Amino acid sequence: MSDTVIRIAETTAEILALYNPIIGTINLIVREVRDIYKNAESNKEICLIMYNRVDSAEHAMNTLMRNIEGSEDEEIFENFRKKEYYLAFERFKNLLTNIKEYTNKVSKFDRYKQIINATEVKNKYQKLTKEYDVCIKDLQFTMIMSSEAARVKEAKKVDKAIENTEEALKKLDNTDQKLDMIAKNIDFLIKERSLDTQVKKIDPSELYEPPYKDTNFRKNVFKKIYKGEHDEHEVACKPIDSQNLGTQLTILKKLKSKYILQFYGLSYADTSEVMVSEWAEKGTLKELYHKHDIPWTRKIQIIRDICRGIVFLRRVNIFHHDLRCENVFLSLI
């Protein structure tokens, strides 16, 4: 039987020269899978399972290679001299490439939707994990071979992750449809240009003074109570000349997001034309910084909400062009 074994290397130097390129590629793939897991938007649990598997295999592989260097134990070298073992390493490298591609695809909502359905996601996961177990056995990485109980536990986590992602995608699909409609309306409005009549006109009688007047003014902006169709709102009234703002105001009326101040329409107050929009009780971000010591946890939330507002605008093909602390408004500290 030993006569049929094809030997491809003899000395330690030959072995290292032969295997190091493959090992370098495997180490790179593992780092890429780790980064994919860290930045995953969806199926975080599946990405973690895949990362744990490739990370464990990398650790076993690197430990094995360290044992070769400087060792005089012939048994350690024997497998590395065989062509079959080298080919098993090649298969392992190709498998990790497939795992990386799969993990990358399921980690992002837009890429996940390119996979036909949840069944395909699970089938691909099962195929990759079976191939992984075979490779681990062929390479004799026995210290990381998983038990049947561990595999069952992982499978349940995968099912739960797929279920959560499917639910999230349903919500995203509804949101995408709404955003696509907003974007189409805005594109149409920009092309048409004749927009002044499309801005809602609010009767001045629908605006009245709030009961407390101590914080009702902010530079040239003043607070009113707007009696809307369904309930009352605290609104900011800012004097403007709307003649040259038809396009911007009409577009602003189309934007519906909790991260964008809502624009209600145009009205008159004290003989001045005003734009009526949502009142931000705490003022601008710049004012807030001067008045309060903002904890880091709140700063992170503010940054997150600013980013969400920017993403919303970008999804409907709008660029802000003047993003600064004076233009970021807050209702809560």
Rank of each mutant, 00 (worst) to 15 (best):
N67E: 14
E281D: 15
K105M: 10
E167N: 10
K44M: 12
V152G: 06
W296I: 15
Y208G: 01
D176S: 08
S277F: 08
I68T: 11
I186P: 01
A150F: 09
T103M: 01
G228A: 09
L87V: 09
E69R: 13
K184A: 09
Q248T: 14
Q301S: 15
D3H: 14
C237R: 08
D180E: 10
T4P: 06
I144Y: 08
L128E: 13
D173Q: 09
E120Q: 10
L255V: 14
S277D: 02
L18Y: 01
E90D: 03
P21W: 15
S331Y: 05
P295N: 15
R111T: 07
K171L: 09
K213S: 12
T197W: 00
T271K: 07
V311G: 00
N43C: 15
Q126I: 15
D159F: 07
L249H: 11
K219N: 14
E45Y: 03
E326C: 01
V5W: 04
I294D: 09
G309L: 08
N67G: 15
Y208L: 05
E14F: 01
K156R: 15
N27H: 12
R315L: 06
S242Q: 10
M65A: 04
K286T: 11
N185P: 00
I251S: 06
D270K: 14
I115S: 03
D3P: 04
K157G: 15
K200W: 02
Q243A: 12
T63C: 13
N327E: 04
K153P: 02
M145R: 11
I115L: 14
T12V: 07
K105E: 13
L323C: 05
A57Y: 03
H320P: 02
L323E: 08
T297E: 12
E281N: 14
E14I: 11
T165Q: 08
V54K: 02
E90W: 00
I68L: 15
T25P: 05
L323F: 00
E32M: 07
L323R: 02
N123G: 13
S42M: 10
N185R: 10
K253L: 05
I6H: 13
P211C: 04
K258Y: 09
Y259G: 07
Y132R: 07
C307H: 06
K291C: 10
I115C: 06
R111M: 08
R81I: 01
K223A: 09
F141C: 08
Y37F: 09
A155G: 04
E273A: 05
K171C: 01
P211S: 10
R34Y: 01
K258P: 11
L189N: 06
D3L: 13
D110Q: 04
I115H: 04
F188E: 00
I182P: 02
R315M: 04
I23Y: 04
N98P: 01
T284V: 02
K224R: 15
Y19P: 14
E163Y: 13
K113F: 08
A236C: 12
C237N: 09
E14K: 07
T284P: 12
I333W: 06
L96K: 00
N67A: 07
C47G: 11
K219Y: 05
I15E: 03
E148D: 12
N185K: 12
N98I: 00
I190H: 03
S2P: 02
L323I: 07
E78W: 14
L96H: 00
T271D: 14
E58N: 13
T250S: 13
F263S: 01
I29H: 00
R193W: 00
I144H: 08
T175V: 09
Y86K: 03
